[in-house]
Design a protein around this nucleic acid. Sequence first.
DNA 1: GACTCGTTCAACCAAATGGTTGACAACGAA
DNA 2: TTCGTTGTCAACCATTTGGTTGAACGAGTC
Lengths: 117, 117
Amino acid sequence: MDDRLSRVFAALADPTRRDLVARLTDGDAGVGELAERYDMSLQAVSKHLKVLEGAGLVSRSRDGQRRPVHLEAEVLDLMTKWIQRYRQRAEERFDRLDDVLAAMDDHGDHEQRGAAS
Amino acid sequence: MDDRLSRVFAALADPTRRDLVARLTDGDAGVGELAERYDMSLQAVSKHLKVLEGAGLVSRSRDGQRRPVHLEAEVLDLMTKWIQRYRQRAEERFDRLDDVLAAMDDHGDHEQRGAAS
DNA sequence: GACTCGTTCAACCAAATGGTTGACAACGAA
DNA sequence: TTCGTTGTCAACCATTTGGTTGAACGAGTC
């Protein structure tokens, strides 16, 4: 789990962190402000934010003694790209299946694995 | 980590499992066949497949002594939906920012947090 | 300087994760 | 029925994860 994509997926595998992302679409917020919504310690929320930050989903600046958390939404596109790539490949294969089956009937070659690859 | 979405994200947080998904877009395959590509035991791959199955990303049927693994690509749409929902919300807020800033200049109210929420 | 607020760091803990090896189950073939 | 092939189950281990508490830090305020 060291590449970028793995970190992004792992970050969003936690419901609390997904909720944080959802909340941050409403605008930047401080850690304490965010922590109010959850039944866990401030430190735990801070840890979650560090994971999101490590994945590049979130950035933090300094504003006095506050550390406002900002959503970097473009990173989400990275995931969408990966997902859609294989989603589409699977779809295409599914669409081709009818043709393949028809071709198999034509010359009587019913080797399944050949059809799938 | 018990809800569906969490399981799907967590499943794809591992590079091996993402590669398995990628491979399966080429068509169904047996466990041993899949395991050849990785520098790990057959049992380890079997475990990975169980995780993918738990997330609903993969299903297995019985064909003689083989257990062909099949990709259930529609589940990927579940993720895309979640991602795009918040991706879009973030985008919209970003688009509105100019208007908000203009309004703030109008009546001289420069409270940042108000602008962001 | 002393105090408070918002946040982070450090140590600790239980549970989950990702891998290993060894045994065994299910099926087809000899 | 015995054998090889294909895959799962069980026990074990090291590391990571998600949470806790307590101490400390940085920046304004008194």
